[in-house]
Design a protein around this nucleic acid. Structure first.
Length: 161
DNA sequence: GCCAACGTTGGC
DNA sequence: GCCAACGTTGGC
């Protein structure tokens, strides 16, 4: 029995936002086409928690929390020629790309923008700040806690001190 | 829309 | 196995 792990997963809100996930409750996190990100998907366990990060947005940052409810399984969009993520080199008998299913848990008390994460002591080693292009990444427990504190402690500041 | 950073592909 | 060319991500 091992401790629960924490993750961060990026999505462009124009394509799929935290609010979209809230409406559907559970969704498949498909479309990942990067090996490092896929390997992280494969390491996820049911019950793990993940931050929902809004990328290519204004502003970018962490919007909420979700839970992994189904562990990695083949992403069907890789076999569908009409899909953006179609991968002709991936064969059904040996699928190259996986997805997990996630469940909406909650929105953060306050959206935590990327700028703020950059300046927060204790987050210097966060993957988000050092490997900007990785869309599925691990988060250390202390980092997770700091982000949660940011979401709360920042409330006064967000209201203008 | 631009561009930096980085991942992937393919020629050799 | 190296590396140049190319493609993609993602912040701004």
């Amino acid at each position: 029995m091992s401790a629960m792990a924490y993750w961060l997963m990026k999505s462009e809100p124009d394509v799929f936002s935290l609010q979209d996930l809230r409406r559907r409750t559970i969704a498949g996190w498909d479309g990942v086409r990067n090996f490092q990100a896929r390997n992280n998907l494969r390491r996820m366990k049911r019950g793990d928690l993940a931050f929902f990060y809004h990328s290519s947005a204004n502003p970018t940052g962490i919007a909420g929390i979700m839970e992994i409810v189904r562990e990695a399984y083949p992403d069907p969009t890789q076999f569908d020629p009409t899909q953006d993520g179609f991968d002709p080199s991936s064969k059904p008998e040996s699928p190259r790309w996986d997805q997990v299913d996630v469940r909406f848990v909650r929105e953060l008390e306050r959206f935590v923008p990327l700028d703020e994460l950059r300046t927060r002591p204790g987050l210097e080693k966060m993957v988000l700040l050092n490997n900007t292009r990785l869309s599925v990444q691990p988060v250390e427990a202390p980092e997770w806690d700091i982000v949660l504190l940011c979401a709360r402690a920042g409330l006064a500041k967000a209201n203008g001190e």
